[in-house]
Simulated assay, not measured.
Amino acid sequence: MALQYDEIGQRLRAFRLASGLSADEVADRLGISRTALYRFEKGELAKIETLERLSELLNVSLPTLLGVGIEYIPSAVAYFERIRQLEETAEHIVVLSGPISFLLGSNNFEMALDQVLRESIPDDLSNRAKALADVEKIMEILHERKRAYHERKPPIVNLISAMQIEPFLNNGLIGRVTLTERQKAVRRDMARAEVEHFASIAEEESIGVQVGLVTDSLPHMGFHIFRRRSGDVLTISPFRLGERPNIRVGVAVVSSAPDALSLHEDVVKEAWYTAIKGREAAAYLRELLAKAEANQRAANSYPSLAPAIYS
């Protein structure tokens, strides 16, 4: 198997960002210059001994760093950086997501994410300072992803789970459940605005953007398929943005194995075949919006019935 040094450099950068170590700190610990480290991250050849020391320092296996087999990524920072890198060269993107897909989300959604991700970090978390620092890194990466997407506009197929939209509308865009009732009301308004945004996207049927609303069951974890000239790549991730986000727990997988890609392509084909699209999808989303608003009015009028409504 021929090693692609530019992609080794990309993985090196992703895991270095996730480690919380600066380029200077990594270079000092390895006894190399920061310039040399940056050259490695740009894909210049590094000695295997240096890569071994880097993998040990960054707590990642050498096969994962080299891209031999499957990459296992336990960090949301590293995962979103790898996604950003893959999107840079993707000629076509397939996304299977929950109620919200970041690239097609509104600017307001991106603006709200920083607060939502921060509140998802428990107050008593032992390493809370690092977790909050990770949020800042993630937001920088996400902002760059959105900028690059609008600049390149690669064609995208986005499958959205209809079954996850109702709880998203009822709960709102929240990072924790212990918000005040007023805060929850604001977050429900945010969620409704985002679902209306996706209804408009589906209705427009713009060239290069295909949205399918899947009313059947979908895998709980989302995935991406990046179709690239240099080879297709699959990513599967427990990290999620949107309702009750998760940026702390789980292990993402990046793979270019033909069987993994083929099996997930089959999932996409079946889901797309049964998905509702275009104006039908927009109408369905707006029906869910109307239902959520009616439920909320009933809950406000009869507070004692709220548990029954949301059970």
Rank of each mutant, 00 (worst) to 15 (best):
Gln10Tyr: 03
Arg13Lys: 12
Arg13Pro: 07
Arg13Thr: 02
Arg16Ala: 01
Ala18Pro: 04
Ala18Asn: 01
Ser22Glu: 00
Ala23Ile: 01
Asp24Ser: 14
Ala27Tyr: 00
Arg29Ile: 07
Gly31Arg: 03
Thr35Ala: 15
Glu41Gly: 01
Ala46Val: 05
Ile48Phe: 10
Glu49Lys: 09
Glu49Asn: 07
Glu52Pro: 02
Ser55Val: 06
Leu57Phe: 04
Leu58Met: 12
Pro63Ile: 04
Val68Cys: 05
Ile70Arg: 14
Glu71Cys: 03
Tyr72Cys: 04
Tyr72Leu: 14
Tyr72Met: 09
Val77Ile: 09
Phe80Pro: 03
Phe80Gly: 01
Arg82Gln: 15
Gln85Phe: 15
Glu87Pro: 07
Glu88Arg: 14
Glu88Pro: 00
Thr89Arg: 05
Glu91Ser: 09
Glu91Arg: 12
Val95Phe: 03
Pro99Ile: 03
Ser101Pro: 06
Phe102Leu: 08
Phe102Asn: 03
Phe102Arg: 04
Asn107Pro: 03
Phe109Ala: 02
Met111Thr: 12
Leu113His: 05
Asp114Tyr: 13
Val116His: 10
Ile121Phe: 06
Asp124Gln: 08
Ser126Tyr: 14
Asn127Met: 11
Arg128Pro: 09
Lys130Pro: 00
Leu132Asp: 02
Leu132Met: 02
Asp134Ile: 00
Val135Gly: 02
Glu136Arg: 09
Lys137His: 04
Ile138Lys: 03
Glu140Ala: 14
Ile141Leu: 06
His143Glu: 11
Ala148Val: 14
Tyr149Trp: 07
Glu151Lys: 11
Arg152Leu: 10
Pro154Phe: 02
Pro155Glu: 05
Ile156Arg: 02
Leu159Cys: 01
Ile160Lys: 04
Ile160Pro: 07
Ser161His: 03
Gln164Ile: 03
Pro167Trp: 10
Asn171Ser: 14
Gly172Arg: 05
Ile174Phe: 05
Gly175Ile: 02
Arg176Glu: 12
Val177Pro: 03
Leu179Thr: 13
Thr180Gln: 08
Arg182Phe: 13
Val186Asp: 12
Arg187Ser: 14
Arg188Gln: 14
Arg188Leu: 10
Phe198Asn: 10
Ser200Pro: 04
Ile201His: 10
Ala202Trp: 06
Glu204Leu: 12
Glu204Asn: 12
Glu205Ile: 02
Gly208Ser: 04
Val209Leu: 14
Gly212Ser: 12
Gly212Met: 13
His220Arg: 13
Ile225Gly: 03
Phe226Ser: 05
Arg228Pro: 10
Gly231Ser: 15
Val233Ala: 13
Thr235Ile: 07
Pro238Ala: 02
Phe239Asn: 00
Arg240Met: 12
Leu241Val: 09
Arg244Ala: 10
Arg244Gly: 06
Ile247Lys: 07
Val249Ser: 08
Val249Arg: 07
Ala252Ser: 15
Val253Ile: 15
Ser256Met: 03
Ser256Gly: 12
Pro258Cys: 01
Ala260Tyr: 13
Leu261Asp: 05
Leu263Val: 10
Val267His: 14
Ala271Gln: 15
Ala281Asp: 06
Ala282Tyr: 05
Ala283Thr: 05
Tyr284Lys: 10
Leu288Arg: 08
Ala292Lys: 07
Ala292Glu: 06
Glu293Gly: 06
Ala294Thr: 13
Ala294Leu: 14
Arg297Pro: 01
Arg297Ala: 05
Arg297Glu: 04
Tyr302Met: 11
Pro303Phe: 08
Leu305Tyr: 11
Ala308Thr: 07
Ile309Val: 06
